[in-house]
Amino acid sequence: MTVALSGEEIAARLEEKFPGSVVESGADSLLVKSGSWLEIASYLKTTAGLDFDYLTAITAVDYYDYFEVVYQLTSIKHNHSLVVKTRCYGRDNPTLPSVVSLWRGADFQEREIYDLMGISFDGHPNLKRIVLWEGFEGHPLRKDYRRW
């Protein structure tokens, strides 16, 4: 059984290491500041005992005021999982750091989010539209997108 690590415990550890980086934490997830996300991701991946070597999925959700990007992390080694969220604001050019340098599995998923949700990922090696064609206007998965 994959153990879902408690967001609060991890949050406490992260607070120690990167003060002020965690916004809030729940039983199964934690929300971190986008500015320190890359450092936290690197910490989660490399720290012994956590070893989140496997990025299961990335999703973005549009809440009008902000975009929430959800990372499902899993450790194949210890068989435990963690959900980390981060937010980015603004509808014109929301930006987040890319985690492709840590988990290459994020490659296509970040491109997909860029394509459909319009979030740019800083440091992505090949950030361009993936399912829609170049020149398509708008980002269909945004809640305010209307095709008519």
């Binding site: 290459r104 490659d107 296509f108």
Partner: peptide, 28 residues
């Protein structure tokens, strides 16, 4: 691994419906 990430806003339709498509990610 096929995953569905659903977000509900207590309406009758999912607020967000995301598919973790295994074959897309296997192509990486």
């Amino acid at each position: 691994e096929l995953g569905f990430y659903l977000v509900s806003d207590n309406s009758i339709a999912p607020y967000r419906f995301h598919v973790r498509a295994p074959t897309l990610i296997n192509l990486t």
